[in-house]
Amino acid sequence: MVARWQAELGMAALLAVIGIVTIIGALEYGVGWSPSGPEPGAFPFYMGIIVLLASVANGLRAALPLLRPGLWAGQAFLKPEQMRLVLGFTLPILGLVVASLMLGLYVGMALYLFGTLVLQNRYPVIKAGLIALTTPFLAYLLIERVFKVAMLKGPLEAFLGL
C-alpha cells in the first residue's frame, strides 16, 4: 500500500527537483535586471524558485506524520488492489509508446489493443484481432487519406511503400 503521506512526499520531491533543474537552466541566460528589463533567465528562475520553495513546504507538511503520528493515519493513496489496476493499465501504455517509437504508431496500436484485450481482459482472440486490425486501418483512412497528415511510421510501412 502507498500511504497518502508517502505519495505527497514523493510528488513534492519530484517537483522540487524540477524546480532545481529550472533554476539551473535559467542561470545560463542571466537572471538579473538589465536596462531593458528582466534578462531572459529571470522569469524561469523565479518560477523555479517558487516551485522549489512551495514543494519544500508541501514536502514538510507531508513529512509531519513522522513527528506526530496519527495526522494522516489511515489515509491511503493507493490500496494494493488499486495499485494492481493502475499498473495493469499504465504499463501497457508504456509498451504502446515504446512499440510505436520502434515500429510506428499503426503497428504499435495494433499490438497494444491486441495485447490488452487478449492477455489482460481475456477477450476472444478473433474479436480482439478484428478490433486490433480495423482500428489502425480506420485511423489511416481518416488521418492520412482524408486529412493528409503524416503519421509516425515504422519498418512495416517502409516495406509496404506507404
Binding site: 524540477i18 524546480g19 508541501n58
Partner: peptide, 29 residues
C-alpha cells in the same frame, strides 16, 4: 501552496524553447 506549484510549473513549462524577446533558446539543456 499546491496551486502556487501548479502555476509556477505551468509558467516554467511555457518558457521552454525559443524566447522570442531575446531570440535565445531557454531550458532546452
Amino acid at each position: 501552496l499546491k496551486a502556487a506549484v501548479s502555476i509556477a510549473l505551468g509558467f516554467s513549462l511555457a518558457a521552454v524553447g525559443m524566447d522570442s524577446v531575446s531570440g535565445s533558446l531557454r531550458l532546452t539543456f
